[in-house]
């Protein structure tokens, strides 16, 4: 095995859009880096900011929250709540001395398999560029 830095990235995906988009990427055999660990949540608006910060301070190299596009939220506007929290998370990252690239919010619909693969690719590349998290102990 090579010694290249392999980041661990956690992606919270909403059940209705993004998780389904991930499934479509699978069904379509779209290849993306194996660094993503998906956690299924019912809505992007369910993800507590502490969960993101905890993940990053426990050594995750990146965290994604993926939800439905505006207007498509299964729960009316949970995604909008996630969006407003994302700003707060961005500010918290600064407090912890974490690079802003380590957290991303993305809208991926159930039919956007290619977009899912592309976002995962981009996120992995971005994290590889900035290197391991300073909180990483392993």
């Amino acid at each position: 095995m090579s010694n290249e830095f392999e980041p661990i990235i956690i992606a919270f995906c909403c059940n209705w859009c993004s998780y389904t988009g991930a499934d479509l990427a699978g069904v379509s055999r779209l290849q993306y880096p194996p660094n993503i660990r998906i956690i299924r949540v019912m809505c992007s608006g369910m993800v507590h900011p502490n969960l993101v910060i905890d993940a990053l301070t426990k050594g995750a190299d990146g965290v994604l929250i993926c939800g439905c596009h505006h207007g498509d939220c299964h729960y009316l506007e949970g995604n909008l709540k996630a969006e407003s929290r994302a700003d707060a998370i961005g500010l918290m990252l600064e407090d912890f001395g974490l690079e802003p690239e380590r957290f991303r919010l993305e809208w991926i619909s159930a039919s956007e398999g290619p977009k899912f693969a592309q976002v995962m690719q981009e996120m992995t590349m971005a994290i590889k560029q900035i290197g391991p998290s300073s909180f990483r102990t392993f």
Partner: peptide, 12 residues
Amino acid sequence: LEMLSAMVEAAL
């Protein structure tokens, strides 16, 4: 929250 946290920890 504790279930999601447990998954995060397991992932790491």
